[in-house]
Amino acid sequence: VSFKITLTSDPRLPYKVLSVPESTPFTAVLKFAAEEFKVPAATSAIITNDGIGINPAQTAGNVFLKHGSELRII
């Protein structure tokens, strides 16, 4: 599955597209996205474009099915 993750704390709204296997734990996606944007993973969260928080204790495939591919990291 592929996710387009936007960094909301930067006024330029940079984004990265990450492709991972469906079975990947979403905690790993969060950690990798945080490292890519050089923000601390421990204090970061991934939310939907509607501002709904995503529980990272599920697979990337589940997140994709529930929330789609466009996400934000805060």
Rank of each mutant, 00 (worst) to 15 (best):
V1Q: 02
S2C: 09
S2V: 06
F3W: 01
K4I: 05
K4N: 09
I5V: 09
T6R: 06
T6F: 04
T6P: 02
T6S: 09
L7I: 04
T8Q: 12
S9E: 11
S9G: 15
D10S: 07
D10I: 03
P11W: 14
L13R: 10
P14M: 10
P14T: 10
K16C: 12
K16D: 03
V17R: 15
L18N: 02
S19H: 11
S19G: 09
V20D: 02
P21Q: 10
S23I: 11
S23N: 12
S23R: 10
T24A: 07
P25S: 12
F26T: 08
F26I: 15
T27I: 12
T27S: 06
T27A: 07
A28W: 08
V29N: 01
V29A: 02
V29H: 03
L30G: 14
K31F: 06
K31P: 08
K31M: 09
A33Y: 05
A34L: 10
A34D: 04
E35V: 08
E35L: 07
E35I: 06
F37P: 02
K38S: 09
K38H: 11
K38I: 05
K38Y: 07
V39A: 07
V39I: 12
P40R: 04
P40V: 03
A41T: 06
A41F: 06
A41P: 12
A41M: 07
A41K: 07
A41C: 05
A42W: 05
T43P: 01
T43G: 13
T43Q: 15
S44P: 04
S44V: 02
S44H: 08
S44T: 08
A45E: 14
A45R: 14
I46V: 04
I46R: 01
I47Y: 12
I47N: 12
I47G: 13
T48G: 14
T48F: 00
T48W: 00
T48Q: 09
N49W: 07
N49V: 04
N49T: 05
N49K: 14
D50G: 09
D50V: 03
G51I: 00
I52Q: 13
I52T: 15
I52Y: 11
I52H: 06
G53W: 09
G53R: 15
I54G: 00
I54P: 15
N55H: 06
N55E: 08
A57M: 10
A57H: 11
A57V: 08
Q58H: 12
T59R: 08
T59N: 12
T59A: 06
A60H: 00
G61H: 13
G61K: 12
G61P: 00
N62D: 10
N62M: 10
N62F: 05
V63Q: 03
V63G: 02
V63M: 01
V63E: 01
F64S: 06
F64G: 03
L65W: 04
L65Y: 06
L65R: 08
L65F: 07
K66H: 10
H67E: 10
H67I: 02
H67M: 04
H67C: 09
G68Y: 01
S69Q: 12
S69N: 04
S69A: 11
S69P: 11
E70L: 06
E70A: 11
L71F: 13
L71N: 01
R72Y: 04
R72V: 06
R72A: 08
R72C: 13
I73E: 04
I73G: 00
I74A: 13
I74G: 14
